[in-house]
Design a protein around this nucleic acid. Structure first.
Length: 276
DNA sequence: ACCCTCACCTGCACGC
DNA sequence: TGCGTGCAGGTGAGGG
């Protein structure tokens, strides 16, 4: 479900909600959520830890603990966090639960079972496989126009598929890749290496613009503070996209019908007239 | 090194 | 109503 903006808001909300809470007991209900740990190890590594803060790298949520460890979580398609208390039942797919010493609990619920958790030593966080290969953060200086140009120059794939590769550009998913390409007037089928320098610079700006716009939009519709008992909210599909999920609807710029194609077994939406 | 396909799951919207 | 099909905002493994 989430791309960088949704993950960013979930991380910020979690930081406000669970910072300072202490884990009395941790339960891994579905072992394959955390394939690198046994259920006993998972419980032991979290028991007694207090949450220092919650942040994000790419689409990974990082829960920094005071015992020298970090709990890495990837929501994948359907993962979500909920902060519950004794009045609430667990949701249907509660694959992990952190019981805090104040009677509340943080539940990881995941209908499609794609989500992943892993606990690492915080000082080795950047060496973890999940983190080590990620491209620079889109808002960092390392993600420069030059960086993007270099990465695209060696890519023979359609630019849309390139943008989904988290080792090349991190944080974009199927929605924001399509949106950034639309704003930049670049066809999703075009090979990365064939995009001109000026278009690449425009794309670089628009990647940041769509992500920032979405962070602002998702943030504004996410309750603050988020109350106990609700999903820790990362936005929803009620927002309107420019081209994503708008097959046959008029392009916001030229009114041509927006087209949907398959690329790498996923849908891509674009305007065949505005994007060349 | 790159690129492609499939696999991992449940649920929902759609057409017959 | 029910059943089959295709689709869903993600990625890794395993093949060429």
């Amino acid at each position: 479900m989430p791309e960088l903006p949704e993950v960013e808001i979930v991380a910020r909300s979690l930081d406000k909600l669970v910072k300072g809470r202490s884990v009395a007991t941790a339960v891994l209900r579905r072992q394959r959520l955390a394939p690198d740990h046994t259920q006993a190890q998972f419980a032991k590594k979290l028991k007694g830890a207090t949450i220092n803060f919650v942040h994000r790298r790419g689409k990974h949520i990082l829960i920094d603990l005071d015992n020298g460890r970090t709990l890495i979580t990837h929501l994948r398609m359907s993962g979500r966090f909920m902060l519950l208390n004794g009045d609430h039942e667990d949701p249907k797919f509660a694959h992990a639960v952190l019981y805090f010493d104040d009677g509340t609990r943080l539940v990881f619920d995941d209908q499609r079972h794609f989500g992943l958790m892993k606990i690492v030593d915080t000082e080795r966080l950047n060496e973890a496989n999940e983190i080590a290969k990620l491209a620079p953060e889109p808002f960092s200086e390392d993600f420069s126009p030059d960086y993007l140009r270099e990465a695209m120059r060696s890519s023979n794939r359609p630019i849309k598929e390139f943008l989904l590769d988290q080792t090349k550009v991190c944080g974009l998913g199927n929605i924001y890749a399509a949106e950034a390409l639309f704003l930049s007037g670049i066809s999703p089928r075009r090979r990365g290496r064939s995009v001109s320098g000026s278009r690449t610079e425009l794309l670089h700006r628009n990647i940041r613009a769509v992500l920032q716009e979405a962070i602002d939009a998702v943030g504004s519709i996410t309750p603050d503070p988020v109350f106990v008992g609700e999903e820790i909210y990362g936005g929803g599909s009620e927002r309107g996209w420019r081209v994503y999920d708008r097959e046959d609807e008029p392009c916001p710029t030229c009114s041509s019908a927006i087209r949907r194609i398959r690329q790498g077994a996923r849908s891509t939406y674009y305007c065949p007239k505005c994007q060349r």
